[in-house]
Amino acid sequence: MAVATQQLNGLTLPATAARKARRPFPWVAVVLVGIALAFLTLFLFVPLAAVFYEALKKGFGVYFEAVREPDAISAIKLTFIAALIAVPLNLVFGIAAAWTIAKFDFRGKSLLVTLIDLPFSVSPVISGLIYVLIFGLQGWFGPWLQEHDLKVIFAVPGIVLATVFVTFPFVARELIPLMQAQGREEEEAAAVLGASGWQTLWYVTLPNVKWGLLYGVILCNARAMGEFGAVSVVSGHIRGLTNTLPLHIEIVYNEYQFAAAFACASLLALLALVTLVAKTIVETKAQREYRK
């Protein structure tokens, strides 16, 4: 390419001159990259560094104390429980929804697609409130639940429900375009060869979308562990019982225990970094796969 351009430009131009000739306004690139970098630094790198700086300001002793105290441990546990329930549920739901939408034609398909996007378009606080209205003491099922001594709101089930709701588009959203792009021919081929629906799903469809699926799961998990708004509404903020990690951080921060708050926050930041690395690895793998 470069050689061809040089020849076009009059045979004797040196390589650098040719390159300059192709980019008439080099300063545009410099300015644009500069703006992007400045923005990233201000809104991403500095806050990220601040989290770790604040967390470790009073030394490692305080840091580990803050992360090890019973309320923090309980919050970490609850966060993991919510994610451990929400992610597998949404994995199954996401595969089912994407499979239905991508491989079959039926009435109301676009309505289903819109509904899947609902949690993205609704404020998380509203999502939380919906569950309070349904399962809360004054809600539709409130009296019935109380009669049977079941607690949903201000308890673990409510937190899980809110997390599931907020995170359910991630896997489906990731899989639908991928499955649609791959078409139906391989599934048809499997059917003609005698494979049942389950065999087709397991041996043909899922292996073809495995990287997209993993990508969706990673994003879903990150959101499940980091969700604040919806969970905050249904949690009731009972220390050691119904606080997830993000809620715990807020409480500790409001009590002016900055080092402790940032120590816990650094855990979430670490999670974000791990997610980012995993996501990058999966993306490159996926690209290599789909280029075939």
Binding site: E185, E186, A189, A190, N208
Partner: peptide
């Protein structure tokens, strides 16, 4: 059945 674009299982 042989499909127009073969539909071999790519993985």
């Amino acid at each position: 059945f042989v499909f127009q674009h073969y539909a071999l299982f790519r993985h």
